[in-house]
Amino acid sequence: MRSFEYLAPSTLQDALAALHQRENASVLAGGTDLILRLKRREQSPSTLVDIKRIEELDGLETGVHGLSIGAGVTMSRIEASAVVRQDYAGLHAGAATVGSAQIRNRATVVGNVCNATPCADTVPPLVVLQAQVRMSSQGGERRLPLEQLFTGPGTTVVRPDEIVVSVEVPLPEPGTGSAYARHSTRAAMDLAAAGVAVALTLEDDNETCRRAHIALGAVAPTPIRASQAEDILSGQALTPALVAEAARVASTEARPISDVRASAEFRQEIVRVLAARTIQAAAADAQRRQAMSRRSG
């Protein structure tokens, strides 16, 4: 690791000022990716701005409008949240899949988003749950749909003087369920060869799909939507044949590469299998949430 200046401001304002004043500064959150890159000298910032002391970035807020995940919130906190498990099952599954207990105690959701690896486990679930990203700089604040954040593997539209302060996830409307599944060679401590997230909204009959969102991870330069597969499901009864057809189409929308984790052909096939399972799982989650809300209503 090359030497660097280390700052740990206690306010967002101070952190933004530090980023504004310095060339070549990096934001440090959980550090599970960044410290690795520093060790490998893939990145050698002159300053690290540690944002973990900033209280206003540490909130995991749940409410009637949705979920607000501050930049300091770790995977473990997502995993431990009963509300996330209840209403954002796909995100819960994604966060629980990351690394090991040790990694999940440090790694943050916002860090997972900002690193922009195509195989990030929380990104496809956040995309199908229509998450927005909130960014701050000294110039002000802006918001973007998460889908529009990524420009390629490891690259985003976040500027060097900006901090992603939170990811905002709207509360899924009644009748909506979500799910995430991924395939990796090892059951734990491995990166996804392919991942599929689905959010479905069912009509009152609990069978017809009103709307579907499907996102694929690790099969394109950025996480992508499988919009043709979504169109197949919309307005139709979720028969096994329809689910199989949507899954087949989703696999044709994947644009995978061959690498150390899997061949392109295998990834394409895995997307078909995972998509079918995840569509069913999201529908089951929608029915479960529907039943819960009827009971409490």
Partner: peptide, 23 residues
């Protein structure tokens, strides 16, 4: 030294972390 093996695990405020990935 890369957060994969857990040999460097310590408890930080009670939670297990890889001390090779903490400054």
């Amino acid at each position: 030294g890369t957060g994969d093996c857990g040999a460097c695990t310590v408890l930080l405020d009670g939670q297990p972390v890889n001390s090779c990935l903490v400054l």
